[in-house]
């Protein structure tokens, strides 16, 4: 009887208190999928962007000056990604720019959902709470000569020339307050009476001239840590708010120069990029 009592209590105890087994901790490197979600924050609510065909007069968005606008095209480079953790963990994405291909330069295109997912691999196991990245392509992506992959001038539609380098952020659309006259755009034509094109970039800094360094190196801290190791498949969700691109440090006036094709003309929008990107959440 005592044996039964002991055994049954033991069995019960084992079952009642048995939590899931502790998962084995491995120290193998893991991955992190970084999602760039392009949004417009309207009345404090995140809205997914909707692109319209060139010439459309459906204006879903309003800038800080109350000017309505829409979006035909939105594309930007994210490069030189680094991750840092609270215990000294560090990771930097492999960068390469050669004729046969390029690594570490990601062209995020609102019209291509797959381009908004960046898979970082071989990240040392550990916890990370900060991401740093460049919006745009810095000198090493330009001075190495003609590059392939996401940097291929023939297919990326983001290359100016060797002096100006790559466009960091390309926006095209229209607003009723714009008087059009856009040139050199991908989707908006010169005869569109309300078209706009903001091509923002520049990797050289030559004071007094057209060449201004407009790429932005941003560091964003998470409200939690993300655990990286071989058994985990975490996702980091970042957002890019197009409303902030046109109004944060500077309120962009669409009645002014809305045909921006050289670095010096894009300084204010470039400055706004510092507030347009934000950390949103993590799936662990």
């Amino acid at each position: 009887m005592k044996k039964f009592l002991f055994l049954s209590t033991l069995l019960f105890g084992v079952l009642f208190f048995s939590a899931c087994k502790d998962e084995e901790e491995t120290k193998d490197p893991g991955t992190l999928e970084v999602n760039f979600d392009n949004i417009a924050v309207i009345n404090n609510v995140q809205q997914q962007l909707s692109l319209v065909t060139p010439g459309s007069t459906d204006y879903a968005y309003t800038n800080a000056l109350g000017q309505k606008f829409n979006i035909n095209l939105l594309r930007y480079y994210i490069s030189a990604i680094e991750l840092d953790g609270p215990n000294g963990e560090h990771y930097h994405d492999h960068m390469e720019a050669t004729a046969s291909g390029s690594k570490g330069y990601y062209l995020v295109d609102e019209s291509i959902p797959a381009s908004q997912l960046i898979l970082l691999e071989d990240i040392p196991a550990g916890e990370y709470n900060k991401i740093t990245f460049t919006v745009g392509v810095d000198s090493s992506g330009v001075v190495n000569g003609a590059s392939g992959g996401s940097l291929d001038p023939a297919t990326c539609h983001m290359f100016w020339n060797w002096n100006s380098g790559y466009i960091a952020v390309k926006y095209e659309g229209q607003s009723d307050v714009s008087n059009g006259g856009v040139s050199g755009a991908e989707t908006v034509t010169g005869d569109n009476p309300h078209g706009m094109a903001y091509h923002i970039g520049g990797w050289k800094d030559i004071p007094g001239g057209v060449f201004v360094y407009n790429n932005k190196r941003l560091s964003l801290t998470f409200d939690t840590v993300v655990k990286v190791e071989s058994k985990e498949a975490p996702e980091l969700h970042m957002v890019f708010d197009v409303i902030k691109m046109f109004g944060s440090h500077h309120n962009i006036d669409f009645t002014g120069n809305h045909n921006v094709h050289k670095p010096a003309d894009g300084v204010e929008v470039a400055h706004n990029l510092e507030h347009a990107f934000a950390y949103d959440h993590i799936h662990q």
């Binding site: 939590a19 899931c20 998962e23 058994k231 985990e232 498949a233 662990q284």
Partner: peptide, 20 residues
């Protein structure tokens, strides 16, 4: 009650699973 994290076919944990 408690549930362990789910595992995908590739052996990695499925995001946002498990709990107590």
């Amino acid at each position: 009650e408690g549930i362990g994290r789910d595992e995908q076919a590739d052996g990695k944990y499925a995001a946002s699973t498990g709990g107590k």
